[in-house]
Amino acid sequence: MPDTPLTGTSLPLQDRSPSQPVRFRGGGFTVKGHRWAALLAFVVLIAVWESTNRFGLVSELFLPPPSAVASALAAMAQDGSLWQHLKASLMRIGVGWVMGTVAGMAVGFAMGIGSVARAVGVPLVSAFFPIPKIALLPLFILWFGIGEPSKFATIGFGVFFPTVIATYSAIDSVPRNLIRMAQSFGLPWASILRKIVLPGALPGILAGFRITASIALILVVAAEMIGAEYGIGAFVLTAGNLMLTDQLLAGVLVLSLLGLTIGTVLSILERRLLKWR
């Protein structure tokens, strides 16, 4: 039907022959794969950005062109400082995130399963979660010094609370009837936990990982405010202080590429771990 063009005087639909097949209209906003669309959008964006500078619409100081950012990045890669910065930051993000996640999941599980732990934990989490970690930096320096521990602590604290919330609400959303059925079949407690609660809560926990991984990336900049010589965050801060805007954007680009990489790794992990769905 959609192929027949309306020629001449267009007839109202109901006047057409009733035997015509009806097109399926309920497609909704079906998601289709458009691999090239995202790529094209990036290409167009970068082209527009570059041309604003080439035609002198924007000063290079206010918005350095992509070519300047790329050459700043290339210079960093060439003299080896990029790897030095990346290594330092990845170590801090890795250790801090693992510490925060392990502790957060342990507490989250306790709160999801034990009612006493929940009664104690929920108000505590509500009270401590909104504290801006950056405001605590001077205290962290006194407690943990200016070496690596204070940086791990900054990232770890930031990751801990969202993990607790994600874990215990994921456990909360495991279908109760499944647990009740297992209980009535006399399954041992550990078995219920391993075979029902853990797999049921996993999607929620993994979604939490996505958020906490981004939080860790944001906090690495704050953590590297504490006397860090190397690190992507320290590099970005220094570039900002020195008003070297091309280097600033190069550092930001590295951070967002890191975010993209971590997101991809988590997607693969999700696909693997949640195959049972």
Partner: peptide
């Protein structure tokens, strides 16, 4: 030289004996 970003953090590092 240890960059602490601002004076309060500089003082914290000083009082903590980090520098």
């Amino acid at each position: 030289m240890v960059a602490m970003q601002d004076v309060p953090k500089m003082v914290a590092a000083f009082k903590g004996g980090q520098v």
